[in-house]
């Protein structure tokens, strides 16, 4: 296990850098996480992150792109615009969650 410093806070992460402690995340931290991967968060981003957090608490795993799209009514195309190139992984990272494990 690794502890890294993000926004002057000690944060537990896995070998790749994804957060491992659900409760160490808050919306302020999300801004820093997003900035680190070149994304400036808007309300549209934040609404998706909130959905991901709630769904993870409920389901015990990170929603896949298809699930995010279906459950929030956000078109897949839009998800690719908001979190370019690797939307599922980037959303999970900024939401402080593990990578999705589902294939679809």
């Amino acid at each position: 296990m690794t502890v890294t410093t993000i926004a002057d806070r000690s944060i537990h992460v896995d070998a790749e850098g994804f957060l491992t402690e659900y409760d160490e995340w808050d919306e302020e931290l999300a801004d820093t996480l997003a900035a680190q991967i070149g994304i400036e968060l808007t309300d549209e981003h934040r609404a998706l992150l909130r959905y991901l957090r709630v769904d993870f608490a409920d389901q015990g795993e990170t929603a896949t792109l298809r699930r995010v799209s279906a459950q929030t009514g956000t078109p897949v195309k839009r998800l690719f615009e908001l979190f370019p190139a690797k939307p599922a992984k980037k959303m999970a990272y900024v939401a402080g969650l593990p990578k999705p494990r589902g294939c679809v």
Binding site: M1, T2, V3, T4, T5, I6, S10, V13, E16, G17, F18, Q36, I37, P84, A85, K86, K89, K90, Y93
Partner: peptide
């Protein structure tokens, strides 16, 4: 074992394109 890292550890999402 816990390792402390001062520089932020950020996942490598690869370069676009």
């Amino acid at each position: 074992m816990t390792t402390q890292q001062t520089a932020p550890l950020v996942p490598d999402f690869g370069a676009d394109g």
